[in-house]
Structures are given as C-alpha cells and as structure tokens.
Simulated scan of single mutants.
Amino acid sequence: MITFIPLTGFLGAGKTTTMTATALALQAQGRKVAVITNDQGVELVDTKLVRSKLDAVAEVTGGCFCCKFEDLVEAIVALVGSDDVDTVIAEAVGSCTDLQATVVRPLRQYYGEQMVVAPLTTVVDPLRFIAFDRAAQRGEPESDLSYLFRQQLTEADVIAVNKLDTVKADRAEEILTRLRTEYPNATVVGYSATGGDHLPELLTAWGGPSGNQAVELDIDYDRYAAAEAQLAWMNQELDLSAAGESFDATAWASSVLQHLSDWARSTDALIGHAKLTVETGGEEFAKLSVTGAGEAPVLDRAAGATATAARAVVNARVACEPDELDRAVQQAVTAADEAHGVSSSATTPVSFKPGYPRPIHRLAAAGA
C-alpha cells in the first residue's frame, strides 16, 4: 500500500524544503520515498535542487494537480513502478487551493485500494501570515491573494508553520495559538525545515486524522482565478560566459535576485518567490531564492568554484504584469553582468498569467 502525502501552501512558504527534509527523515526511518514537484510553468529550479538530494523525483508541469490530475496519477504510478517506492510526497503549485475536493477525495475514491492519502498539509510562512493578517487588522478589504491564502488554511488538515526560527519565540507562539483558535479542525505544527527543529512533530501529524475531509470548502472560483491572475509567472534560461578569465556564479546569481528584490520593494510588488540556479558544469550548481520584496537572497546551495561558462534558469512569480516582470529581470541580469564580468544571452522571456482553474474532478464531501 502506497502512502501519498499532499502539500499545499502559498508561494515562498518553503514547501520544497519541507518536502525534501521530510523525505530524508522518512528515509532514515526505513521508508522508500519519492517526491513530485509541480508548477504552472516548465524548467523548474526546485526540481534541480531536489534531484541533487533525492533519487526518486518527478514533476508535473503546465498546471496544478487539480487540472493535471491524470498526470499526477501517472507520475505516482511511474515512481512506484520504477523505484519500489512506498511513500510519495507531492507539493502543489503555490497559488492552488480546493485540493480536498479536486485531488484528495478523487484519489481516495478512485485509488483508495492502492494508496492511503495522508492529511492535506498547508505549509505557512509566518512572515507572510503576519503581512496578510496586518492588512486585515487595519480593516483593509480582503484582497484576492489574501482570500486565496485563507482558503488554503481553511481546507488544511494540518497547518505546518515553517521558518519559525525567523520570528521571535513569543511571536511564534502567538501565531500558533491564533491558527489553532481560528482553524480548530486542523492540527497546527510549528517547525523549521531548514534547521530540522520540531520536524518529527510534522511527521507524526501525517499519521493523524484528516479533520477537514468531510468539510465542504465554500470557494468562489472567480476570486480564485483573479488571485492567480494577479501573479506574473516567468521562466527564463540564460547562457553565461566570462568577460575575463572567470566569474563567481553564486555571486552573480545573488546580484540578480538582489536587484529584483530591490525593484519589487520600489514598485510595491508582492514577490511570491524568485529562484535562480546556475549550472557551472557536471554536478556543480548554485541555487538561491528570495520570497519577499526588499529581502536579501537566501543561499540554498553554492557553486563550488569560479567558472568560465554556465547556464542559468530563473523562476519568478511576482504580482505585476508579465511585461513588467520581463523588464525587471532583464535589468537585474544586465546589472549583475556588469558587476561580475559576465556576458549573458537569454531566451525570449516566457512570462504569463495562469488561466482559469478547471479541475478534472471536483467531488463533494460525504454528506454535503
């Protein structure tokens, strides 16, 4: 019997880091674990990083699991068949919700004899929660993105508050208490996927009850679609070459993301996430990310040495128009090239806005 563990949560919450950390922890317990990444676009930065740490990795691209349900099932079957897997962890697109009705229940109904579907887990960045909550406390009308964020919390069986090491202890406890009070059907767990603090508590929660499986999410699909349409999604590849003898790939990538972060702050553009990898040859690559306007890039992996040539991939999800994001990334790359002695050649930007979500299945809760 296969155990399927579905993760959701807003962009930048740390779903991929959570998925990787828990997969490694479960493997240490003797489980054979595979993971599935998911995105509206293609050429995923996260998949590259995950494959550097785990053996069994698949991806579903071009749409969320709800709209690519058969692709999800095919990925699960392929992983189980080729790698003798007994556990699959899958992270949905960060702008997706309504997964109880469109993914969890269909899997249980159509494949319940072949797999156990664990409680639906929503991964939360505490700083993102604070930002959305602060707007609500000021009495501002609920934005479509805030509405989407709230729906992800409402349907969760487990609310997994990641990055608790980024806030003070008293503030962290206040957030956990608020979430337990406002979402009593969910198990609320606080942890750090990067540091590993309290990660066993999240693994334990996955073996608990699915408190919301019988709750019907009252979701306005027009608002859901409007929230997704606020975000421009960009994937771009670049070929890099040193203008001199060599260049520092990690420093170049950090410079690109810092310029993009500063631009977002100056234009008041919400960053879902911006991620960048630079492959310098063989297994060597750098990977960095930024999840908030004005924030410094976070280094997930550094390239081992300077390089004469490299290939970079940018994934950016920002609340702005696609052409604005294209220009911002181009300007950030140009600035980084000049600062680090690099000549870059980019593919045509492929920024877009997601289409209207149209799930393959949408099953009502039992008794609804």
Rank of each mutant, 00 (worst) to 15 (best):
G292L: 04
A346P: 10
E338D: 14
E142S: 02
V318K: 08
L199Q: 03
A136H: 10
A251K: 10
N315G: 04
D239C: 11
G12S: 08
V318E: 03
Q331A: 13
V215W: 03
E237S: 13
E91Y: 08
A296Q: 14
Q152L: 02
D220V: 03
E283I: 00
A253Q: 07
T121I: 08
K68F: 11
I360Y: 04
E283N: 01
V42A: 14
L179F: 07
I219T: 06
L44S: 12
T347E: 11
S344G: 05
Q151H: 07
G367R: 00
A365P: 00
D170T: 15
T177W: 14
K168S: 13
A136T: 04
A307G: 04
G190Q: 11
F132S: 09
G195Y: 06
V57W: 08
D337M: 05
S343F: 08
G14K: 05
A286I: 00
V80F: 06
Q29E: 08
A310G: 07
D218L: 01
V93P: 11
P357T: 14
P119D: 09
A316R: 12
Q330V: 03
A366Y: 03
E338S: 12
G190K: 10
E70I: 14
E321F: 12
G30Q: 03
Q230E: 15
H198G: 10
A13R: 13
